[in-house]
């Protein structure tokens, strides 16, 4: 059938799951074995070799629910990335979920993709955050209680903090905002790749063991700001900082160079950079320079998504 790959999934007729895994036409392994370039200097990373293969047996595939609404626009590539990481993906419109909140109970991963929900009118993520809080707070709280893995990327992160789903110091504080993502210091939208660090003591399951990595950012409102100094202290001490920009590579002037945070349990993760935009080696801006590390390691974005999927998988097995 002729689906448009840019939007593979629709609830019209249920999810069309496109299998990517290891045997897809995209192939695996080194992109250009005989590239005559120099590897760019890259810090050593603890990461699995990139084989492109699925890591999880199909029977155990956790199911991921992607929430989209007017202005969501990174849904297809996030679905692709999560599938490549081993999940089954279902994309649903907010309106459908308001009418069918029971869908949440079937998800072991909930993702809010990037984009410009409602045009970022009033402020980035504000309207979707309000709608989720007003209409779906209970099913989401219930999912948090169940230990469902969650990821909010870029606009999804903005939504998460504005609806009070992060930092979620306590369960009953979900719904109360205490941090925000404000205008970049430059006052402008910026798209470029940044170098990131994962704090060693982070509790975030999505970034465990990734000490340094590169990902693209693309946002105008990504400056992490807290309501009071104690919030920052608490995030730092509780291992809730999941990812930081390298100090000289901070694109937006965030407090503590924070690029992503998680809940105290480490399962709910929000970040400004786009992991779904680095799931293939040719996404990297220096991929044409070859270099063994770049071409044979698992792309950092895929590594993040895979950690989330694996954690969800373990949770599924455990229950």
């Amino acid at each position: 059938m002729a689906t448009n790959p840019a939007t593979l999934l629709t609830h019209q007729g249920g999810p069309d799951i496109v299998t990517i895994a290891g045997n897809s036409s995209i192939g695996a392994g080194p992109v250009m074995a005989d590239a005559r370039g120099t590897p760019i200097a890259r810090p050593a990373r603890r990461r699995q070799p990139y084989s492109g293969a699925a890591y999880i047996m199909p029977a155990m595939k956790p199911s991921a629910l992607l929430i989209r609404t007017a202005g969501t626009n990174c849904d297809a590539e996030l679905a692709y990335g999560l599938q490549a990481a081993g999940a089954e993906v279902r994309i649903e419109h907010l309106h459908y979920l308001i009418d069918h909140p029971q869908v949440f109970s079937k998800a072991s991963i909930i993702a809010i993709p990037g984009g410009f929900s409602y045009g970022d009118d009033i402020a980035a993520g504000r309207i979707l955050a309000n709608r989720l809080r007003q209409r779906l707070l209970e099913p989401i709280r219930e999912a948090v209680r169940r230990g469902v893995l969650m990821i909010g990327i870029c606009n999804g992160f903005q939504v998460m903090v504005k609806m009070g789903l992060l930092p979620a110091f306590e369960l009953d504080r979900i719904g109360t905002q205490s941090v925000t993502l404000a205008d970049n210091t430059s006052g402008r939208f910026i798209d470029r790749w940044v170098r990131l660090e994962v704090p060693a003591q982070t509790r975030c399951v999505w970034t465990q063991g990734l000490d340094s990595l590169e990902l693209p950012v693309a946002h105008g409102e990504g400056r992490f700001v807290v309501d009071r100094p104690e919030t920052l202290t608490r995030l730092e001490q509780g291992g809730q900082v999941a990812m930081r920009y390298q100090a000289e590579d901070d694109p937006n002037g965030s407090m503590g160079h924070i690029a992503g945070i998680c809940d105290p349990g480490g399962r709910i993760f929000g970040l400004m950079p786009h992991p779904e935009r680095f799931v293939d080696p040719t996404h990297h801006p220096a991929w044409t320079r070859g270099g063994a590390a770049l071409l044979t390691e698992e792309p950092a974005g895929l590594a993040i998504l895979r950690r989330g999927v694996e954690a969800a998988c373990q949770a599924t097995v455990a229950t």
């Binding site: 990174c74 402008r188 939208f189 910026i190 798209d191």
Partner: peptide, 12 residues
């Protein structure tokens, strides 16, 4: 830099 040139995930 002001344009998102990577959305949709197909940038090479």
């Amino acid at each position: 830099r002001q344009y998102d040139h990577e959305v949709q995930g197909g940038s090479v």
